[in-house]
Amino acid sequence: MIAVHQLSKTFNPEDGAVLDGLSFELPAGETLAVIGPSGCGKTTLLYILAGLSAASAGKVNIGGRRGRGHTAFILQDFGLFPWKTAAQNIALALELKGANAASRHKVAETLLTELGLEGLGQRYPVQLSGGQKQRVAIARALATEPDLILMDEPFSSLDALTREHLQNTMVDMWQRKGLGYIIVTHSVEEAVFLGRRIAVLTDRPTRVKALIDNPSFGTADLRFKNCFFDRIREVRRVMEG
């Protein structure tokens, strides 16, 4: 269960509030796509949810198996450390917890296989394609055993085909593990494909304009179905209206 209550954030009083009394709730294991005009504070919201930035006012409650839920963050670029191999990047969270080399190796290998990256563990990020890099980033997030994954426009720099493959991977992960995520995106199609709920944000100061239910999320071949396009039109209308 994730509860965001009256969340506000102001960086600089002269510029006004970035987030202003933003509230929403999300049941555990649910997926949420956040969409809104550029510069509206979507990234700021994610930073606060990830605990990287403090809110000026309001409350964030991320329920977890052990007290405060643990989040994992996936960024568009720069997520992977260029000086670590794919396997080292994936196992970094375990290394920080003090896990031994053997267990780290095992987890990295398992996740590499799960994400279709067999044999690429010893490569450095610079030797991987954009899609492979984001797969490694997803694997690294999974290795932290998070309660919630936060993604900041993770696929926007990828070509269309790779992007759809990775979107499928995310839905697949959700179906197999029941792992919830919040994805920030500027693509309506991506929001409708990846969010069981879609939060449409207003321009600054940012509030939730509408929380749209998307019951067809996760159905097979969603991209070819009429309900997919209907939902896209609905989201567009909300955004423009």
């Binding site: 930073y47 990830a50 605990g51 990287l52 989040t71 994992a72 963050f73 960024l75 670029d77 720069f78 997520g79 450390f81 970094l92 969270a93 920080l96 932290t144 936060l150």
Partner: peptide, 11 residues
């Protein structure tokens, strides 16, 4: 700075 943010989300 994103490298720093990315890391701080881990530790």
């Amino acid at each position: 700075r994103k490298y720093v943010d990315s890391f701080r989300s881990l530790s």
